[in-house]
Design a protein around this nucleic acid. Structure first.
Ligand SMILES: NC(=O)c1ccc[n+]([C@@H]2O[C@H](COP(=O)([O-])OP(=O)(O)OC[C@H]3O[C@@H](n4cnc5c(N)ncnc54)[C@H](O)[C@@H]3O)[C@@H](O)[C@H]2O)c1
Ligand SMILES: NC(=O)c1ccc[n+]([C@@H]2O[C@H](COP(=O)([O-])OP(=O)(O)OC[C@H]3O[C@@H](n4cnc5c(N)ncnc54)[C@H](O)[C@@H]3O)[C@@H](O)[C@H]2O)c1
Lengths: 216, 216
DNA sequence: AAGGTAGTGTGAGTGTTTTCACAATTTTGC
DNA sequence: GCAAAATTGTGAAAACACTCACACTACCTT
């Protein structure tokens, strides 16, 4: 839809910039430099300028960026105006935490509906989100296009297939299973155990001196 | 300590390989090819071979890799023999989920101790992990070197400072705050709201046809 | 209204990661 | 015991990402 000239790495940082700009605005700041932004979000200032430059000249030389303007620009770019509905599959430990949180603080996504296989959970409402039985997936999902997967790894492939059949286009997968999907479905894996192990590995094997290695 | 010739990107994939090899072994498989691994973990087979090659020649041409041998090798490389103790700070929605889970299924990390500021939580034990008051951090932390941060963003910087003062070397930060640390402390951010927003952004703005874009 | 200052936008350079593609080698089946 | 099949390990190329460094310009101060 847009020019997909924007590098993947840049796209991943946009939500971060957006959130920080929001904070700035709430604090009443009207201008900001790439240097200040850099200190706050821990991304090199040249990288920030480069990132912004993919969208054109948003700043002013010798001045910096106008917070209001930049924010307005990103709001449009990130489609912050329309809310994207999300379905959550699996109301266990993690799923429940997400329902309570619900990603609504300056965010454009909202968990609208949840599913679980456990009859004790079905019928409840957590954080304002109704929980239905997974058997009702096909009739209840409507046209939700994004799903968060927090079910046991064993179930992941089977449920994924059903989600895809219902027209889901994006999946945020918290299970350790690397799920298989058609090419036009986007899956982001967040594998918390791997993240923790990787952190430990880096601590043990990498020179822990100078040059903080940025977050991801 | 080790030769840090291994690329960052490779290091992040190691735990993933390790876990999958474990599964294979439990299924009784004795050999595996980079192609099979590729299908399972969704990483290009050439990338897998390259990754392995940093550790020397682990496979045999025309045959593949011996699961037992490879697993043994990674066990040593990833220090799976010794368990790394972890502290969890903030026993709220997310923190509680982590305590219940505790990363112990084929993993080398264990949450050993938790802290919270809420007196109602202090004194409890969740998933076998005792919860102490954050005021006791300095006396109770012992020589734990890794912390998981699941407190409100507002508190992040203040608590981080205390953690660093106590000798913490690695932080897995789930708060949206980009915390500031000395250069020799490693921080990995996992920003769930950003992940979700980025997924939505990709769905809307990137050609959703062919070529699945790899996870992480 | 002019000179100093701050700070962008970007060309060019560097570093990192992925992918291609194939010679080398072992296994497998006959 | 030989030919075909399988699959590694890696040089080389391509793709991607980050950073340097500076010309340029808008703002600010006096
Ligand atoms: N909790 C953590 O800290 C943590 C950490 C890392 C990874 N994970 C992964 O996240 C996933 C969820 O973890 P959890 O701790 O929340 O597990 P959990 O067991 O607490 O929750 C799983 C939920 O899914 C439901 N469920 C089971 N089968 C289902 C199905 N077919 N359809 C719909 N719902 C179904 C269960 O009823 C349960 O409520 C797991 O794959 C786990 O490996 C969790
Ligand atoms: N829950 C989610 O799904 C989710 C999603 C994205 C991001 N996050 C982030 O993760 C963090 C935790 O989220 P949550 O939902 O678990 O919040 P929460 O409010 O449920 O839990 C926070 C816990 O930290 C404790 N706490 C507060 N100040 C403390 C201090 N100084 N020291 C020790 N403990 C302290 C509180 O008592 C509470 O138990 C937040 O920063 C949140 O923005 C959460």
């Amino acid at each position: 839809m847009d020019q997909n000239k924007i590098p993947q790495a840049t796209a991943k940082r946009l939500p971060l910039y957006y959130r920080f700009l929001n904070n700035l605005q709430m604090q009443g700041k009207t201008r900001v430099s790439s240097k200040e932004l850099s200190d706050a979000v821990k991304v090199d200032s040249a990288t920030i300028r480069r990132d912004f430059s993919y969208f054109g000249a948003l700043g002013k030389k010798g001045y910096g960026y106008n917070v209001e303007y930049l924010l307005g620009f990103f709001r449009k770019t990130l489609d912050q105006d329309e809310i994207t509905d999300v379905a959550l599959i699996g109301v266990g430990n993690l799923g429940t935490a997400f329902l309570h949180y619900n990603f609504m603080k300056n965010n454009n996504t909202k968990i609208k509906i949840a599913f679980d296989a456990d009859d004790n959970k079905v019928g409840q409402t957590i954080g304002g989100v109704p929980i239905y039985h997974i058997n009702e997936l096909e009739e209840r999902l409507d046209d939700v296009k994004v799903a968060i997967l927090t079910i046991p790894a064993m179930e992941a492939d089977r449920v994924t297939e059903r989600l895809v059949a219902q027209g889901i286009k994006g999946i945020l997968n918290f299970t350790p299973a690397r799920i298989t999907v058609p090419d036009d479905i986007r899956v982001h894996h967040i594998d918390l155990a791997v993240e923790l192990q990787a952190l430990v590995y880096f601590l043990k094997h990498y020179p822990l001196e100078k040059t903080e290695l940025y977050s991801e």
